[in-house]
Design a protein around this nucleic acid. Structure first.
Length: 500
RNA sequence: GGUCCUGUGGCCGAGUGGCUAGGCUGAGCUCUGCAAAAGCUCCUACAGCGGUUCGAAUCCGCUCGGGACCUCCA
């Protein structure tokens, strides 16, 4: 197997991935701010990094996957009236802050579960790590990179930039940053515009507040990730992921804070996913064009024509490379839905072929077909190793679909594959479809009783067809169709059914 | 304004200089009591203009269009 290459945002090129400790990988991904419901845009990083997580494990790594929950609330905007997002909304909804946090955390976990995303190894919360954050800020002050003004602490970017490259991740030049003229309140506290808050003095109306050496306040925008990643992954770790919109200032500042504290760059590989757009524009709260996940799943949104299954969204996202933008449209989603259905059915057919226990006879092997299948299936690994090219893996799977279906229909005899090739095909499909891409059946979970009823109807229909009583057989099929259950007469005379 | 990304067939999207990705839609055919599914075939695109090259969607330049970041943001 070749080596894994990942695109590192830091170097702007694909690099061979080598973990710091052989066999082990530390990965930190920026998690949600639980002050509201997750939307379609949020689904992208979680699904992207879920597949990366699963693929790393597939490669044999033991991965510690840390994904935080931001429950402390950050400011709406620097310098403006310091509003703690969570406390503000709590007042509106007349909820305790923690009640709100709990509600949206639960909802977020539910959505991740719907997407079949594995839970991270550790899911630390910002409020649970105030002490660590304060410790880190103290260290930064002691080293001379932080200064205290009126109970707030700021990071001295100019001083840092004297000896470090602030802006290396986001490609920013610090002098240009300073030229940007923005008259914002509270700026006068900072020595320089580029400085950012490590700790913020809390106004009396703030509900979320903690004691600190500098007074009552709350942590700054970026410190939680630095504190928690250091705590659980060490001063330097392998992968840090998140959306591209976090490159600046969030990740840039994380690098600065951690570097000052630990005297070593925190992250070896920065991986950033691109945005989901809607009508060509990024989906985000500030642009007011978000579709919440619950709305996607229910179809209850003016822009959403029908309910989309979480697996459809997962497939939709994996059909594109994670560093490309992905445009939302009903047409595209419905295309994804049909594609996934076809892929999944072929995958199930492949499983049935195995269960049928065909005799493999090596004397009938079609070598051309064999080499074609072997190539398609081996490229799964190759493509994933090339910066997680899930789109190409899916393309190959779709080239296999007609072959598998033809074997099922016996247009291609199963015996034209050697036992080895057939086994390889099944193993690779199982590994990638279920274990790495983690697709699941989009059909409703069928229960035993329903199965029994369906079998009864199928038997009756078979008998009717045997008598050429097409009135009865069509009635059964048509009525079921109206209920959203479709029957298919297979070529071998059996009847299969699926819920639409 | 600064930095960066991007423009592929009806739609969504891969694309490493040469060997027409793939999905969805549409059309035709095969199979079939009919239907659905499935299989086969077809619709062969790279914003525009120049340049480099034997050869460019792919490299370079310009023009036009779209976007991201520079402020909370996945």
């Amino acid at each position: 197997m070749g080596e894994l290459k990942v695109y590192n945002s830091l170097s702007r090129e694909k690099e061979v991935f080598k973990s710091m400790t052989p066999g082990l990988v530390g990965m930190y991904v920026c998690g949600p701010t639980v002050s509201g419901e997750s939307h379609l845009g949020h689904a992208r990083p979680y699904i992207t990094f879920d597949v990366i997580y699963r693929y790393l494990m597939h490669l044999g790594y033991k991965v510690r996957y840390v994904r935080n929950i931001t429950d402390a609330g950050h400011f709406e905007e620097e310098g403006r009236e310091a509003e703690d997002k969570i406390s503000k909304k709590a007042v509106l909804e007349k909820l305790e802050p923690m009640e709100l946090v709990q509600k949206y955390t639960n909802l977020y976990h539910w959505a991740m579960n719907q997407f079949n995303c594995l839970p991270p190894s550790i899911e630390p919360t910002a409020t649970g790590h105030i002490v660590e954050q304060i410790n880190m800020i103290e260290k930064i002050i002691a080293d001379g990179y932080g200064y205290v003004v009126n109970g707030s602490v700021y990071f001295d970017v100019m001083k840092y930039a004297e000896t470090h490259d602030y802006g290396k991740l986001s490609g920013r030049v610090i002098d240009e940053q300073l030229e940007t003229t923005r008259d914002l309140e509270g700026q006068e506290e900072k020595r320089n515009k580029a400085d950012f808050a490590l700790w913020k003095n809390a106004a009396p109306e703030h509900i979320m507040r903690w004691k600190s050496p500098w007074g009552i306040g709350f942590p700054g925008w970026h410190i939680e990730c630095s504190a928690m990643s250091t705590k659980y992954l060490g001063e330097q770790f392998d992968i840090h992921g998140g959306g591209m919109d976090l490159l600046f200032p969030h990740h840039e500042s994380e690098i600065a804070q951690s570097t000052v504290c630990n005297h070593v760059p925190p992250v070896r590989y920065w991986i950033h996913n691109n945005m989901i757009t809607i009508n060509g524009r990024k989906m985000s709260k500030s642009l007011n064009n978000v579709i919440k996940l619950t709305e996607m799943f229910s179809g209850n949104h003016p822009m959403v024509e029908k309910a989309y299954h979480p697996m459809t969204i997962r497939f939709f996202i994996l059909q594109t490379h994670y560093r490309s933008t992905l445009d939302f449209s009903n047409e595209a989603l419905q295309g994804a839905e049909k594609g996934l259905k076809r892929l999944w059915e072929a995958y199930e057919n492949l499983g049935k072929l195995r269960d049928a226990g065909y005799e493999m006879r090596d004397d009938q092997v079609d070598t051309d077909l064999e080499s074609r299948i072997t190539k398609l299936v081996s490229e799964f690994d190759e493509f994933m190793n090339d910066d997680f090219s899930t789109a190409k893996v899916l393309a190959n799977m779709f080239e296999l679909v007609p072959l598998i279906n033809s074997m099922k229909d016996k247009t291609i005899p199963v015996s034209s594959l050697s036992k080895e090739t057939f086994g390889l095909l099944q193993k690779q499909m199982k590994t990638f479809v279920e274990d790495i891409f983690a697709f699941k059946s989009i059909n409703e979970e069928d229960n035993e009783k329903l199965r029994g009823v369906m079998q009864l109807l199928i038997d009756i229909r078979k008998e009717a067809r045997g008598r050429k009583d097409f009135v009865t057989s069509d009635k059964i099929r048509n009525q079921l169709h109206r209920l959203g259950i479709s029957l298919k007469d297979e070529k071998d005379g059996s009847i299969s059914w699926s819920i639409e």
